[in-house]
Amino acid sequence: MSTPARTANAPSKALLEKIFRTAYKIRVFETEGIKLYRQGLIRGYFHPYLGQEGIATGVCAALSEGDYIASTHRGHGHCIAWGADVKRMVAELLQKETGYCKGYGGSMHIADISVGNLGANGIVGAGTPLGVGAALAAQIRGSDAVTVTFTSDGGSNNGTFLESLNLAAIWNLNFILVIENNQYAVSTRIEESTREQDLYKRGIAIGVPSFQVDGNDPIAVHDLTREAVELCRAGKGPVLIEAKTFRHMGHHVNDPGKYMPEDQLAYYKARDPVDRARAALLDMGGAKAQEIAAIEAEIAAEFESAVEFSKASSEVTPEAFREFAVGY
């Protein structure tokens, strides 16, 4: 079960471009966002998705309108891949009223339920039952929508993982659980937190079709997710996907990550998901170098204008807040 079935058809140029755009947009968002953090414009937690872009990118490219996602504390990439407006994301990080949550939520709580994004989460492992709940609601409504929960190696050791995946299994829900196995929970190595480090095997034990994929290969992630969606729609869900990956830096902006072995970091940086998405668009998609340059310039400009927009936005006033608090 660990070998994903690859789709027969080569990916279209349109798909490859979409994948590159998304992966690159996440890269820019995180890299530039960290700069804003260092300038003191962002407070609190900021967990960068750098190095893991291939997963959100590949998964979301295989989903459709009407589907749902639930995310983690490391959630910026999932939002962007789901099509979020970078302006409103930056505004949220800058605690502005124009942000997705009006500045009430911040980095760990960006959500947009109007488009099926159940949101990031400050509680490790909490997105799994919430996602199963969304899949259950879809089943009850008679919809064939699929829900994807992104979770983590850390989240897979929490009790919520087994309880909720098992519920999804006995109820045949259209649910895909994606474990982003970046092999660390803050500074704790996966070898210290579980004996069996191939996490997809946990799904097999409860009868859930389970696969492993190179999380730094966005095309492979996309292809596997499409298979998973088809399995769900054929009534064979839920599906568990383990995507192996690695962070490019410490756990959050203020963690230097000195405990991460240099050779392992170098190994994964040599398999950079954004570089691979770019190479795929060039090689498989036949794009020209100047097309790529134009996409990159466009995304950089989009981020810059998002920062301008956010800086110019105002914050919710204490008076408006007190009004919001009435009846709580």
Partner: peptide, 15 residues
């Protein structure tokens, strides 16, 4: 404290 979850925005957090 106010009977409300703590907001992210620092001014509102303080309030």
């Amino acid at each position: 404290g106010l009977d409300i979850p703590i907001p992210f925005n620092l001014t509102l957090e303080k309030a």
